[in-house]
Amino acid sequence: MKFKLSPYWICQLSGWGLATAYWVYWMIYNQHPSLLEGALITILTLVSSIGLTHSYYVLAKRKGWHLLSIRALFPIAIIAIVVLALLFTVINIIINYWGSNSCYQCSFWDAVAEARLRIFITGVRLMAIWVLAFHLYHYAQRGAKAETEKAILENKAYEAQMEKLKAQLNPHFLFNALNSVKAMIALDPAKARRAVVLLSDILRSSLHASKRSFILLEEELQQVKDYVEIEKMRFEERLVIELVIAPESLPAKVLPWCLQLLVENAIKHGINQRKVGGRLRIEAYCVAKELYLQVTNDGQLKKEEDSQGLGLQNLKERLALHYGKTAHFEIKNLATEQVKATIKMPLEYA
């Protein structure tokens, strides 16, 4: 079996190993009278020091001190260093006294009086290095973690962007729309002119899609309206649209493309799968500092199939990354042969 030391134990052992090497060097340099005693003292000091600092490690992890800010950590660290140094002093005096019977001809309390300051200062020095290293390591880790999270977030936004591009430039939507426009040019030129403008705006919004992480619901809604207007031209009586938007929700901040995604899914997997077409209801309202975006369409979700599509998966991840647990997404079949998708998120204004 392969035994692998964690980074913590590598640092712990190598740090104290270095200190021990220094002590051994001094013992040899000072020509310590008894090699056996010297070795015993060194080993006991090493084990007790590791024990002390590891106790701090366990305590700090349990209390979450490694997650504190510098300001909050400072007093704790100072007290910890002093307490650790004191314990270090007591333990070392005892070890030294008992382990060095041969050279201490004096009483225990004389030995204490003689060595306490020297050992205490050593203790403070060593413990300060240890505590500092421990917390610096965690700061670096947190920094790296924050960087990683930021990178993930950016990547998700990028993916969403690509998803949006693909969905809107989706050959099926685009070519069918162009084909309809071609027919309209002959049959209803005014309508064709309108369709060209709508298509242009849809293309523009996907090509020049803003890199902002939030947009106003009002802007999002405009895109959605353009999109459903085009789809309405194609589906005609097969698509019935109903918009119910609470005015106070319009200036709210939302993730770009969140509503658009739900509407596209509702049309593609819902209405378009039905010979008779169906109704599409888009709602936005606010309840108790929460914003609800809701898309209801005729149709039924097929098991697992569409509910976990790439687009919805991405939406869930983006919601989680931006809002944590305060946002929620749900898509479900209603008893009324309808599918309802809901995004709940904190109501925030720009």
Binding site: N179, S180, A183, M184, R234, F235, E236
Partner: peptide
């Protein structure tokens, strides 16, 4: 399924 697509074919 799209009326306009059928119209286009007619044209």
């Amino acid at each position: 399924d799209e009326r306009l697509a059928r119209e286009e074919l007619r044209l």
